[in-house]
Design a protein around this nucleic acid. Structure first.
Lengths: 219, 219
DNA sequence: CCTACCTTTGACCAATTGGTTAAACCAAAC
DNA sequence: GTTTGGTTTAACCAATTGGTCAAAGGTAGG
């Protein structure tokens, strides 16, 4: 089970219903992630969930509704986490170390979700607007402002070099996610398509990225 | 015209043919880029090219063949460029500055191509194998080895801090491409979906990334 | 047992989609 | 002006696909 989302949301359901719905979401997540909204087939999702196709439409009336749910779950697993991790009151350098550690672990557990989010969001940016409308606490402007206050204080205190919160956040996230999202290219071009070598590379990069980021801002 | 690829490849063609074929490739590029292989419709490509759908199949027998062509053109615009730019015999820091300048300019001209490549490659990594088979000079292992030699020399000479070529390349590429590829997310979450602000951010980031990368490796 | 309600299914449908074909078109060669 | 070759089109087709529906299955309460 990739997320006990449903368990929390619909705790009044019977065990049977929960299992079917969970099986559907699991299957849908796999298929949508690999083939995208337009490439996925309801029949394939039904097969993978071990149910009839009509039952799929019984639980989620349309393909779009099912997709929306899957996307929302994937999104809520990766994005709000940023806020949690960067919102504490520790020094910047500790925050970065903590973030890199945790985010790379999360990425290791769910390597296809960021690519899925990015792909589908590029295809239809409107999804994000809907999600943000539904889910107000996702807005992170305030986080960026607060983070920037903290950073500028630490800059003035001579702890770190001058940098904006937006640039720092972008750097941190880029260095964490891109090597996972662009794996086929980097593995193919730089690593001659050697999967094992790339796995090792990613594993070793965990410590590297942390040190690199911290050293790059240390005053 | 997004690329005079055809002109070079099929220079024996009449002007008329060239125009039709170019119109097809232009339209196909737009549609494939926005909707992906599975989301694109041959009818839409034909409409956008101002021709009949049957004519599309006259030039490119199948959707897959047309897609392959478009993908290959997009790919060859972005990937071999890395080799060109990193293959000179200048010092590492100059190479990085040159690369960032040129790549960010290229990205500004074709912001949707990297996302397109990454999306489709995640969906079907086999494409890359085919392209590399066809196009031997794309293999860049040798480049990485040479680059690593140069780096280790400069490290020993006390010019830059210790780093591997693979990590350095990954960092440079990540910091350049990710903010463009993940624009919908970053713009939505960090910039409250303010398109203009994000444009400014990307523009200002050009100098920032260059300085950041160089300072991060300077001994 | 039976009623009532939710779940599950097989059969079916209308619309879409990639692809084909035969005929029309058109420019250059003779 | 007619033949010849590639180019363009309208009409058509078979297969796929998201979605529906009526009926069957199953289960808890009376």
């Amino acid at each position: 089970m990739w997320l006990n989302y449903i368990v929390n949301t619909y705790s009044f359901m019977t065990e049977h219903e929960m299992n079917t719905e969970q099986k559907i979401l699991d299957a849908a997540k796999d298929v949508f992630q690999q083939k995208g909204l337009t490439g996925a087939r309801m029949q394939e999702i039904a097969d993978k969930a071990g149910i009839n196709k009509a039952l799929l439409h019984y639980y989620y009336r349309t393909k779009d509704k099912l997709f929306e749910k899957v996307f929302e779950i994937a999104f809520s697993l990766f994005i709000p986490r940023v806020k949690e991790m960067m919102g504490s009151d520790r020094p910047i350098m500790e925050k970065i170390a903590f973030f890199v550690d945790n985010y790379l672990e999360l990425l290791n557990k769910h390597p296809y979700i960021p690519g899925f989010i990015i792909s589908e969001l590029n295809r239809n940016p409107q999804i994000l607007v809907n999600i943000i409308e539904k889910n107000i606490q996702i807005k992170q402007n305030r986080l960026i402002e607060l983070l920037d206050d903290q950073i500028q204080k630490e800059v003035k205190a001579g702890i770190i070099k001058p940098i904006s919160a937006k640039n720092l956040m972008t750097n941190v996230i880029s260095l964490c996610i891109f090597p996972v999202v662009a794996r086929p290219i980097l593995q193919g071009i730089i690593f001659d398509n050697n999967k094992k070598e790339y796995d090792i590379f990613l594993k070793e990069r965990k410590e590297f990225v942390k040190d690199y980021l911290i050293n790059s801002i240390k005053a």
